[in-house]
Design a protein around this nucleic acid. Sequence first.
DNA 1: GTGTAATGCTATTGG
DNA 2: AGCATTACAC
Length: 792
Amino acid sequence: MKNPNYLNELNESQREAVECTEGPVMIIAGAGSGKTRVLTYRIAHLLNKGVDAFNILSLTFTNKAARAMRNRIEAIIGSSEARNLWMGTFHSVFAKILRFEAEKIGYPNNFTIYDTDDSKSLIKSILKENNLDEKVYKPGMVLSRISAAKSSLISPQVYMNDSEAISHDRSSGKPLLGEIYLKYNTRCFNSGAMDFDDLLFNTNVLLRDFPDVLYKYQNKFKYILVDEYQDTNFSQYVIVRKLASLFENICVVGDDAQSIYAFRGANIQNILNFEKDYPDLHTFKLEQNYRSSKVIVNAANSIISNNKEQLDKTVWTHNEEGEKIKVMRALTDNEEGALVANSIFTTKMNQQRRDKEFAILYRTNAQSRAMEEALRKLNIPYRIYGGLSFYKRKEIKDLLAYFRLAINPNDEEALKRIINYPMRGIGQTTVEKIILAANEQGKRIWEILENPLLVNNVVGGGTAAKIDSFVTMIRSFNLELKTKSAYELAERIAMTSGILRDLSEDKTPEGVNRTENIQELMNGIREFSESEAPDENGEAITRLRTLDEFTQDIALLTDADEKDKENLDTVSLMTIHSAKGLEFPFVYVVGLEENLFPSQLSLNSRSDLEEERRLFYVALTRAEKQAFLTYSTSRYRWGNLTSCEPSRFLEEIDSQYLEFEGFDRKAPKPSNDHQYNDMDWENFRRPSNGNGNGYSQYKAKPAAPKPAYTPPVVPKNLVNVNKASSASFTADDAEAIMKLQSGMQVEHEKFGIGKVLNVEGMLPNKKATVFFEGVGQKQLLLKFAKLKIINP
DNA sequence: GTGTAATGCTATTGG
DNA sequence: AGCATTACAC
């Protein structure tokens, strides 16, 4: 035992929650109350009491959280026993179990896991084959209906007989959703593929239809812990209830105030009804916040009190008072970025902070662009979490599709992706014919492809020969799965398939970047190949690590799982959803505008709006020392400048915790140079708390002042003259364009380094003549050319 | 079957 | 504005 006094590191309610190990336990944990700490210590305590690690199942929200917990547990108990714990997300833990048991429910053990893109692509194929209009049956929407059904354990058969579903789909003009759902499921099954929801649905099928399997896992998992229980859906709930029903050593941890995934089927009722499921339940409340200042805790409480549905709980803190929350207003989204970047810069300098102590949180991924540009201009390093994750990039998915097909040749989506990439003359029509033939004859796609007779029935001789050589190639990969290491085979596939050749022919910066991404993937595979594998007893052993292991490992990774990047000293940019569970000394929540946050789509129902409010609560409670809230009075949305009103959430915060920087809340909206419909600023909502003077402490200024915003100091050697993106000028851009003079050395994205020979014209249409080495003389419209001044 | 130009759609949130 | 799909020419 490395740390025998570990219980002393907990406060009273934390310790009680840790020590109550037997029977059902619910822990209601306020934001920043040490929830992870309790879970970690609880597991350590179980191990310390002699419980075998193999008998503990701990379900976390991300795999990264599981890894972090495992490490902390090892540090507490001082042994490597923690590696034997079953820990991970619902999806990864039950995918692992399904790999053992798949054949019982008719799946191959090496089943593919379809991601959202695969699912959508399959739905598109089905729509096309059945002559259904993609505009009526939008693939994304169809998928979310299917997903909702699966999360509620509604099979296609049940769906098609469900009167509520039938009338819902009829009245929305999509009566065939049930049929599509059935076809979709059949196709997944025939491809040996499960989508994300199938992993949980099929686990339920397995536990329902095979009592011996259920019994086996009930006995195995004598202690079950579930983190973020407020975000579990019905399907997950049933799995947990079934597994726990033998011993009832079930501990769930959650916070109803932080439930932000109802949109994907999460059900707060799971936490609210837990008491009914387990009458002899022990409930613990963690209400002391250790993370944030008093200002932040109290401000967050004042927001969440606007929600009607919530458990009784008061979060408080002993921490210092802290700075007030700063509210900042910008005129455009770009200026909002500049405001934030500038504020980070000054705070960093004044308080001697590191970049990694700052986070910028937003409601939608699209908002990151303005922030990025502003940070780049100030040379502030940043890292975006989410967005296009590494494994979603085209070139990565292409190579992975080869791996997938080598592992499971019936994987229809992988096949469609690469049968003609790099191009080998097997076009769309051919693929459609083959798939059609497979479905008509009730055969798997690979059965058709493998059989020259069947292929010849469908396509001409020339195409058949091309198919034959493709089949031979994939089959040769397949034969090497068990004999070659992941790295050896991956390298061979990258070469033989022609992907590397195809990419290396592309000399554009994007093309080079794609090759580098492939290289990075290969490095990851090499690392994997050289790592030790756990055997079934959890012992690390050295044996061949194969490509199918690798491919299955990464299928459920998310970018939150990207490892070892958190040590980088960079500002973090992410959506509020992905910020869940994280904390930062300084947090900027940006885009606090009506229709953006709260989102327009949430305004129709009370429960959706309350979820948005909980999301805001989550955002604010990420901050330790100080929070900053920003909004813009106008913003580009799908290419047009639109006018925005400040978010209602700004008014819901008790104003004693707010400080308005550079503007007066009561002052009329400042005029600016942009042309757009001026919204009714005078009717900017008055405080609705009835006393009518909610803002009186802010003195009204007579005139409409420009916000006190000083443009950031831009390093002279890296002036971004303009972005091609906008036809409108920000002050910065215009200024930079004006600075451009002949004789300067500049860099162009495509043409490289060049020298300015001449500048002419008036501002919006100012032109420069630039000589680029190896390219020649070019006339560039500064509004569009991305010119960087390298040497003034 | 392949390459390019034109059109049209989109931007909640994520495993 | 940017991306994906579609239309049409080769």
